[in-house]
Amino acid sequence: MNPKSLPNDTPYGCFDLLATLVAVVRPDGVCEFANTAVETLFNLPRRAVQGSNLLEWFVDTGRLIEALEGVSRNAFSSSRFDAVIRRGPRTHDDLLPVHVIVSQTEDPERLVIELIENAQQTRQDREERNLDQVHATKELTRNLAHEIKNPLGGIRGAAQLLALELQPTALWSELEEYTEVIIHEADRLQSLVDRLLAPYRRAQVVGDVNIHEICERVRSLVLVQFPRGLTIQRDYDISLPDFRGDREQLIQAVLNIVQNAAHALRDRIAQGDALIVLRTRVARQVTIGKQRWRLALELHIEDNGPGVPEEIKDRIFFPLVSGTDGGSGLGLTLAQTIAQQHQGMIDCDSQPGRTDFRITLPLP
């Protein structure tokens, strides 16, 4: 096979099976092929990466230029060095340290660049912790909710019987007020328990789901709540196929995350520069819960808010943990549960000025 012709499925298609980021470039850094790991890292469809210049992604381009020139003129067969790349547009300042390997091919006009993430293992460990956390939360939530539910019904029933037994006296109105408080608070706790158990009680209504229809529904709902000061941008990969899932549950999961982002942006909304980005991408060769999937969709919900408070970063998917005043702390718990029921997961990358919740769901 002639390596000088580069259709997308030949002759470098085998690179798509690697977890390592691999690109085939010309000596000037222009990318002619990028494997799926590069596509996933840069959050760009492959057609946008191919044809771009990889020099734009490096913070310091000097070492890369030197390596490309040296390897292309056969001064040495390969070059290794550490560098820092940007995972997104320059405005995001989202930096990632990598180890770079530049190697020759049979064609001196085409070179192979490998990028090995120094933080790759850290991210995998975090995803495993998130999955363990989801399983623990599920068991804790179900057991705790059932333990609360039974005595709560008895308390409410006793308060109702007591209210019926009260005789009109001087203290009647005051005592009736007390029983009403008991009944009201019992109902409030019952509602909380019902919300905790909702994902486990309701049978899934499975059908064909389009992720962009879900995003559009959520976008319209949130913009009704926040008509001024908030912009919700779309960045969709329209090549993503439909998949099987529970549409209403997935709407609820995405809505919970977007509403959380909007509430976290309240100061920026007041200033008029609050931004949420809904970004969809396809991911290949993805591992979710120790199961390998050939294809998956990724929905990134990114905002320019203050970030998740440091003290709760590791606990944001726990029930009753909230970073906002008056929050129930159930939104992210329910969203993670719904994602898990679709064999997916949600993780979060947050720092001041940029928070990115990523929903990953397998595709058939």
Rank of each mutant, 00 (worst) to 15 (best):
N210L: 06
I238A: 12
Q120S: 06
K138C: 08
T169R: 00
I155M: 08
V181C: 04
K138M: 11
R201N: 10
R129W: 08
Y236H: 05
I232G: 01
R202H: 09
L140D: 12
A198H: 07
I148K: 03
V224W: 02
D194L: 07
S239A: 15
L240C: 00
R202S: 07
P199E: 02
G207D: 12
L175F: 12
Q233K: 11
V205Q: 14
I232W: 10
E180N: 14
I148H: 05
R244K: 13
G245K: 05
D235S: 08
A170E: 15
A136W: 03
C215G: 00
E147K: 09
Q204D: 13
H135N: 07
Q160G: 05
V134L: 09
G154I: 15
D246T: 00
Y200A: 04
L192D: 04
N118C: 04
R202M: 13
K138R: 11
I182Q: 02
E165D: 14
R219Y: 01
V206K: 04
R247D: 15
T122P: 00
L161V: 06
Y200M: 05
K149F: 07
H135R: 04
P241E: 13
L223H: 01
D208F: 03
P151Y: 04
L161N: 05
H212Q: 10
T169L: 10
G153P: 00
R156T: 08
E117F: 02
P168T: 15
E216V: 06
P227M: 05
E216C: 00
L221S: 03
E117T: 01
E165V: 09
A170P: 10
G153V: 10
A198V: 12
I148A: 05
D125G: 01
C215N: 08
E139H: 01
P168A: 13
E213H: 05
V193T: 11
R244A: 14
Y178G: 08
N143M: 06
L166C: 05
R217M: 14
H135D: 01
R234F: 12
L140R: 03
A170K: 06
L115Y: 01
E165T: 09
A159L: 05
E128I: 11
E114W: 02
L223V: 04
H212N: 06
E139N: 05
G154P: 00
E216N: 06
V205A: 10
R129M: 15
E128K: 13
L171M: 14
R234G: 02
L152V: 15
K138E: 15
I214W: 04
L221Q: 08
V222N: 03
L192Q: 07
R195G: 09
R244Q: 15
Q120H: 14
F226R: 00
A136H: 06
I155F: 04
L115A: 08
L162W: 08
Q167C: 08
Q121S: 12
D242H: 01
H184K: 15
F243L: 06
T169M: 02
L152G: 01
T122C: 04
R202V: 07
L192N: 03
N210Q: 01
R129Y: 10
T169Y: 07
R228A: 14
D132H: 13
N118I: 09
I155D: 07
H146I: 15
R228Q: 13
L197W: 14
S191V: 12
G157R: 12
P227V: 00
Q167Y: 00
D132N: 09
L189C: 07
L175K: 11
L161P: 02
Q133L: 14
L161R: 11
L161E: 14
S239F: 03
Q124R: 10
P151R: 08
D208H: 01
